[in-house]
Amino acid sequence: MAVRGIIPPHMLKHLAESSDPEDRKLAVRMLMRIEKVRGMRRALGEVYVATPTGGRCIRVYDVKHGSDSDLPGDLLANPAKSKDPEVKEAYKGADATYSFYKDLYGRNSIDDKGMCIDSSVHFETDYDNAGWDGRQMIYGDGDGVYFNRFTIAIDVIGHELTHGVTEYEAGLVYQDQPGALNESMSDVFGTLVKQRVLNETVDQADWLIGEGIFTKKVKGKALRSMSAPGTAYDDPKLGKDPQPADMKHYVKTSEDEGGVHINSGIPNHAFYLAAMELGGHAWEKAGRIWYVTLRDALKPKTSFATAAKRTYQVAGVLFGEGSAEQAAVKKGWTGVGVKIPK
């Protein structure tokens, strides 16, 4: 599938000749990838480029309500057929996410080298969270009063695994705007994993993150909404969804690493607007642009404005300068008040 990602080198010409050194570096990185794939093809005599072996390795562990120092816990045999819904969901979600990256974008696991995807369930007791610890995923059972188990939503699993992808690629620092971009990348690919499993078009998708995690007691449909950030929940105990949908409402805070789970609403909505503009299955065009950008074009301290510029450039490289895809990307970012810098 990496072959499908081949970019006509002439399209990189304008980037390679840009006065901006970052643009030139991006062009060089993309050209190097093309050369790599070409070299592989030549070596194989122009036959089909076989996918690297040593792929799909998905493991689920039970940490039995233990904490960080107890990770990963006991390795479980046959998690796909487990009677424990948390085990089964953790496995199936990781498996669907692996397939998503592999089938659509030619990526072989979190590190693109086929590393095992490890998940531990039953983390601590009544734990209202899921996370990526830099090595593996952890899932809490939820308190049962306000929160159900976190594996219940497949987009949460895609979200966590994408944190691993981001760490291996762009390395977006988990603070302020780069941190909110890191969060947004996880929401984007988390929801795309769900959309692909359900085979939904942009109009059919709910664009919600964490649907099903709240119990019936909570007034809210999910933890976040990409189509209407700030509207996912409004509950007397848990408060109101604090996400902004545009730069005018950007939240300045020292909490949550500078509001990484709050301001991610802005790039989330930009992606949603671009995907809606393009229609069809969001993973085919908008998702592809975002993925190549995450893989090749972002740096650890990228701001929203630079990310906007990079997605715009990548859309130009993948689909052509002045293409409808490039226009849709611009429309997405403009819609959230991010101007694409020259």
Binding site: G131, G210, L238, G239, P242, E255, D256, V260, H261, I262
Partner: peptide, 11 residues
């Protein structure tokens, strides 16, 4: 105690 962050970002 103030707890922020987490997957949900709920304060």
């Amino acid at each position: 105690l103030v707890r922020s962050g987490g997957f949900g970002g709920i304060r």
